[in-house]
Nucleic acid binder design. Structure first.
Lengths: 207, 207, 207, 207
DNA sequence: GATGAATGAGCGTTCATTCAT
DNA sequence: AATGAATGAACGCTCATTCAT
């Protein structure tokens, strides 16, 4: 019995894997191409070669499907998590952050479609559905960053004069900025991007 | 004789101001609420209390309206531009950047709706219509930032070890990040946000 | 005072010739491109650079304009009429028919747009507007042909065994057939087309 | 399992025959009344008493429907084809042509609506959609006629002096002319029309 | 569990014409 | 006489979802 999270109905996990994968793939394609609202269930169904009725036996509605896809992405991202990220307090601040940004870059490289959907999600902070899905995660991440920053200050790794709340936001948004830069500037290696951004974050740009 | 930019038809500028403003206001509301694709011309029409046929006498199509609104925003933003921004070479790097971020914050405060539309636009870098409208501006801005950074290094204002290309992107994206933060954290004053972000940008967070 | 035929209003003939011609040209273009129903008054107005209200001061409605254009064509065709056609009884049957077909070919060559509109008209025998405009002309022409044929038989120019009613129709429809052929087979000269069709009409194709 | 031709979707053949026939009938009515461009899908839908969404589950779009109707006509016409038409080389030229014209007349009598649509199609040689559908057929027919005529000359059935290319066009267009005449002159029997036209075609009208 | 027919609201857009100025 | 703003019906088409089989 697969863990279901209440999201898609059991029926979805009973059908054969090939069909299931086809649905997932076409959904990813569609949500990558269009925002949630504009993404077309009709097209996903048509391209997946499944019956319309079937779709609604697997998923309650469009939102259900979308949440499932987002969940897939989240789960896939989890497989990239390293020990440094899982146990950040055991490592130096910049080691942790560096690892975090690095796996984001790797993930973006290996799953550009998922990353694209993920980006759309983060951007659309106003939108109802995005709020429902993301708001909580964001808050958790931000507060976790804040704690790490405070720990970093305690450990004399970080400048005590910074605004921990604001820097937490900066750390959070830099994640997206870095992957964004990496995705659209193919002449930079992962390491270059990572090093240069981290250098700037650590030392600032002033003299 | 109003300057027309070829965008909406002359007819739009001939109707009475009240009606025109109603259309503009309702358009802004709609484009704030929804992405371009999902924004509904029908709803704008209904809420503006104009006939369907009339709308299409003012604007060629939905895209025409959208571009007009974007242009309005651009023009409104221009009224905020200061001498420091117009002649950045006459001032120190951080003075210029500080001014730039500041007017963005002021604009966001005074025109939250326009800012919201603007944000949607920046975010949606993949989308065709956004590319048409924004792509060029972005490139110009990035290259201008890069030159300013190089000038800053020459003048010993900035650390010579930074990657000017990447920092240009950072400066660019920080603009949005800051206004984003400011808009959603109402317990911070403009000056606090500005100071803390700039402090971090200048000095970094490392010890 | 121009002869008006009740068709367009006098106002149309009071405006300056350049504007009038522009309206006529654009109307011809539009009616050439589309059937009456699909032809767009809006587009004619836009392309003529006249005010919408003006159009409806010149013409009662779309139909009025169309009838005017058709009338123009009819009048233009009249300028091609030769003495043989005006006084057919004074000439041999085939001389008359040959002349008739010939001026149709010349007209088609010199006014392909008008010919195209004319063709649409003839084809659309079912359509209400076409009936109103053409039905009478057609009847007159057919009965005239019939009389000419009977005269030809009397004069021993034509075979007495033919069905005069049917041959009248044939003569009538051959007019269109010949011009049609001529317009789409540019590798034939007017004379070749004319000679070959007339030869066949006169002698038949049997041995 | 019905043969599908890829034209309308399978779904159309799965709905009950009564409804299907209603849609077909109303489509025929509408396409008979109006040219393709002006024919209204909305009206077909309303008169067929089906939901708008349903229509677009049966047909990809208006063009799809139209092509289906045209195909129906083509298929219906095929049921009239005789051995003489199928194997024209086994028969004398005039036998073949006579048969061809005859079945056209019969078809027109039995399916006046289909004939009307067919006529509109043939007439509208400029129009894009008509070209797509008809252009090829016409070329094939014309070239086939030409060969038959040449065969007729060889066999001494036909006058060697005729222009085979032009006569092929004449044969082709006479088909329409004859049915046209027959449809609008109800006081002639099929046989009269046929005989008189063929007599003229064979012997010409000259003495 | 699978199917796909049915639905009607909604989309962006064009239309011919009227009428007040 | 000239203008162009106003109109609302109609267009072809897509949508997410329901439900009977």
């Amino acid at each position: 019995m697969e863990e279901v999270d209440l999201l898609p109905k059991n029926t979805f996990f009973n059908i054969n894997k090939k069909k299931r994968d086809r649905i997932i793939d076409e959904s990813i394609k569609e949500f990558k191409k269009h925002h949630y609202e504009k993404a077309s269930v009709n097209k996903i169904i048509a391209n997946s070669n499944i019956a319309k009725g079937s779709f609604y036996q697997y998923f309650k509605n469009k939102k259900d499907l979308f949440e499932y896809i987002i969940d897939l992405i989240r789960k896939e991202k989890l497989t990239y998590v390293t020990d440094k990220i899982r146990n950040p307090r055991k490592y130096s601040f910049f080691d942790v952050i560096s690892d975090m940004y690095k796996i984001t870059l790797i993930f973006a490289k290996e799953h550009p479609d998922l990353q694209a959907i993920s980006n759309k999600l983060v951007q659309d902070r106003d939108h109802k559905i995005y709020q429902q899905i993301l708001a909580e995660n964001r808050e958790v991440a931000l507060s976790e960053y804040k704690k790490l920053i405070e720990l970093g200050i305690e450990r004399k790794e970080l400048d005590a004069n910074i605004n921990t709340y604001i820097v937490a936001h900066l750390i959070y948004s830099l994640n997206r900025e870095i992957v964004d830069f990496y995705s659209s500037n193919t002449n930079f290696t992962k390491e270059e991007v990572l090093n240069d951004y981290l250098y700037t974050l650590k030392n600032g740009i002033g003299i």
